[in-house]
Design a protein around this nucleic acid. Sequence first.
DNA 1: AAAGCGGGGCC
DNA 2: GGCCCAGCTTT
Length: 341
Amino acid sequence: MTSDPFLFLPQALLAWFDEHARDLPWRAASPGRRDPYRVWVSEVLLQQTQVVRGKVYFERFLTAFPDVAALATAPIEAVLKAWEGCGYYARARHLHRAAQVVVRDGFPQNYEEWLALPGIGPYTAAAITSIAYGEERAVNDGNVRRVLSRLHAEKEPGELWVQARADELLFRADPGRWNEALMDLGATVCTPKSPRCGVCPLSSFCQARKSGRPGDFPTPKRRAPVQAWPAVALLIGDAHAAYLEIRQGGLLGGLSGLPTEPVEDGDEQGALERLLGRLGARHARLLGTVSHTMTHRQVTLRVYEAQADLPRQAIQAHALSRLDHKALSLTRQAQTALFEM
DNA sequence: AAAGCGGGGCC
DNA sequence: GGCCCAGCTTT
């Protein structure tokens, strides 16, 4: 029988976590098991979102919807308003739908039942059930992937490989604490660039460190190139109240925004005329141009002011993307410029 | 298996 | 400007 090179690794990590665990609002010490609702909301907020940002939205969201019943009975517009600016808005829509299922059927009691809810995938189901229920589930997220890639000096860890390594390393006496410890280590010590191996409790176990270039693990994933996305938008109203449409489809779906039309083949006039025709608007005047970068799109929005007999919505009461807020701020700048003249 | 989906922080 | 973030859903 060969000796296990990771034999003393669990103590090392858990001792480090005793000292260095981050103080996060969803970890608030309710003795014993933690409130599944709070863990759930935090885990969804933290999907592809850094902890420092997630914190702010967690407080905001829990104030608006203190429990699952409050969330389930709220209108979707209110849920999106609480999520406004956080991105990946499908998370909020799924969370809202799932809350209604939970109010009807009760809280899921295990991994499989959580996985069946909208917006809950393998990571989130493992996180919730290990942290709130003590179920023996190893999480597999970006932190775990990076830490394990380095521990084993595996430059291109696949999903199945990471899950298998995480499963065999899982500290089964306290799975939730173990998962949190591994993720905290990845977020604060075993960072993507310039890992702080000098203070890492796992450095003596780490093959990547032994290689001398721990930062080279894992190999960066290839990303789709950013696409240019030219469009025109119509402002009917002002910065405080304007005609808004609820965006359909994937991009910013469910959010309110200025009526927008994509520019095809560089034909801005054509796009503008389609927009004016659709809304029965007239007297378009260029307000300005807004640039907005998303992960996979570079939006250039030409914003026109126009008149039309259409209802104006209070901006403050609706959830808008950063893009639409930028477009609206064009009028403020125009007003400020006039005022200063 | 790959693409689509926000926004911000950091190098 | 590139890369990453407590990923999930759809195709």
